[in-house]
Design a binder for these strands. Structure first.
Lengths: 196, 196, 196, 196
DNA sequence: TATGAATGAGTGTTCATTCAT
DNA sequence: TATGAATGAACACTCATTCAT
């Protein structure tokens, strides 16, 4: 019962934030959306911030699991691996309205709430470190780091601008731009080799 | 008196949002920060949302003015123009704590408040259109649009990740990544020409 | 099972009131202290006030039984009888933390809850009447009543100030003061006789 | 305005506690009793506990001031001084319903709330120390302390039993019992002298 | 007999807004 | 122009009570 109710309430939280925004997401609205009473929230999450933190954890967990699931077999080449990471970030579950709005809201809140900030940092570092690992297969350390920072920015930037555009997220266009960027970074290896 | 008081209150709003976040920025805190009474806010801005909207307008105006100021003379080459736009976005006044936090907060809020959303869109389009104009001097329309979308994402992504990193914004590194990207986009023209 | 569970829950109530005070003694805390579930309370006591009333009755019953147990044989002299009553009131089970705090809490509550008030009055009258009975063996009615009222006040006052002092109750000192008072009251008989 | 509103709200608090008890004294009731809104309480007292603490302080201040006012001139004899202290404790403002119920409620609460406990102790010590000072004029230290403890207990006990009796407080009877007790204590000096 | 999940009325508190001065 | 006292709706949270199991 416990995990069921938690899922239910987290889902309701995402829906309410999508509908009215984090600032107006009251526990009354969330409970109503879940078809439950307000008291149940403190029963399962302690208080409102416990629910919000759990919601953010859930989004992060989904992203992480999706990244792992899409990780191509170890025999795949570097570009394929990197494209899988890009794909996970532009995956349907990450670019749907509820998740995008919640992401943005949490990003904003995380600047002033330690618990959220930690989750935020872990996630940021994971993206960078995943990218870095792959680039390292082809590039020297400094260049790999540089490329990882650039691709991470590209991914987040595309995601952000897509979220704010108002229109539906154009995952295809986003993927293309990210693919091009990562190909260019990988091409530097060839340049370097050619120069040698 | 009117413009003075407005500046004063907008400045106080930025400072308070920097200190405690938009969610906890009460008019009592803002008024105190400005050394004025709470009542004065409705006098000059109607209500709280009027003050917040005015604050966001101010940030956008600052960015616009900085972009104009940095616009190189018309004789300069395209790359120089584009670098000037990048520079404006990573300008000190845009990457300082108060402005970054306020930007993020407004981005988040703009998803659920029509007046903010409009301001947000105008700004997004301006960046894209400025970049597009420059790329058009060197690239065909489709390619220019593509490059503009990529560079805009790169700029916002660098800015976003820099804001969230917790550390001071590394404007130099951000500029370098953005310069590289725009150079690569411009290089496509040469490739195309060479291919011809 | 019924009497066992009731004892168990009343004991837990005393312990919780001792620990957090009547105002913060929730049934959740009491149930936890008893190692039982919250639902069980309504099962055995109807509702919370039923449990509290039963708890107060228990304290009064303990005091009454102790007084009876200590009642010296009927052949003992008046002073011995009175000292036994004093002793019962400063008995360990009456001056321990849990009971003292519960007493005070119930005294306070009894001013606004009819059921508790009745219990309170019965107890007050019993102390006065017990004392009065004894004094009557030596003093005329008016004087006996007077002495009883004084000794009752002395007992309750010593008890109250001892409870509030924060330190452990000094039963020895309390007994001494009460003994002295009752001896002085009894001495009036001799004075009266001597005067005659 | 500030002191006026504070008096007004403290008075309302006393009236509400008298009417429904501390446990049911909600700020909504208190505000209504004062003819003000609930928000004003946090404006002037921070929160509810601030108001309650201020209310207790007020009662203690009244008692202290009354004691000082009644303090006979320094040339008066010891018994007169002591009677003045007794009188202050059985003064109308101390034995009126509102004050008595509030006293009891605070006594009870003070066992579990540090801020109230401190006020409680200060007051307890003041009564004892005032009495002790006077007895010292006639008795050796140990005896004076003893007498002071006894008289303090007698005063509080009479007050407590009077409060709980349900009937109106019989200040005359209370005073008489306390006077008798203090006279008896003072008489010990004469006994001692006579014995010498 | 016993549980504890679920409820929802009631509470203290916050805070944007108003308005008399 | 400017104040800040006062308001009261809205909120998160608590907790006695209920009830299906």
């Amino acid at each position: 019962m416990l995990p069921l109710r938690r899922k239910q309430l987290i889902q309701a939280t995402l829906e309410v934030i999508d509908r009215v925004g984090l600032a107006d997401a009251t526990i009354a609205l969330i409970a109503k959306q879940a078809g439950l009473s307000t008291g149940i929230i403190s029963h399962y999450f302690g208080d409102k911030s416990g629910l919000l933190e759990a919601t953010m954890r859930q989004i992060l967990r989904d992203l992480r699991e999706d990244t792992l699931r899409r990780r191509s077999e170890s025999t795949a080449d570097t570009a394929t691996h990197l494209r899988a990471i890009v794909d996970a970030n532009f995956n349907d579950s990450q670019v749907s309205g509820p998740v995008m709005k919640t992401w943005l809201a949490f990003w904003s809140s995380s600047m002033h709430q330690e618990s959220l900030r930690r989750l935020q940092h872990v996630n940021d570092r994971r993206l960078h470190s995943n990218l870095c690992c792959q680039f390292l297969r082809e590039l020297p350390l400094a260049q790999a780091r540089h490329a990882a920072r650039g691709l991470a920015a590209m991914i987040d930037g595309l995601w952000l601008r897509g979220s704010l555009s108002g229109a539906a997220f154009d995952a295809g266009a986003a993927r293309q731009l990210a693919y091009e960027y990562l190909d260019q970074q990988l091409a530097k290896k060839i340049d370097a080799v050619a120069a040698a």
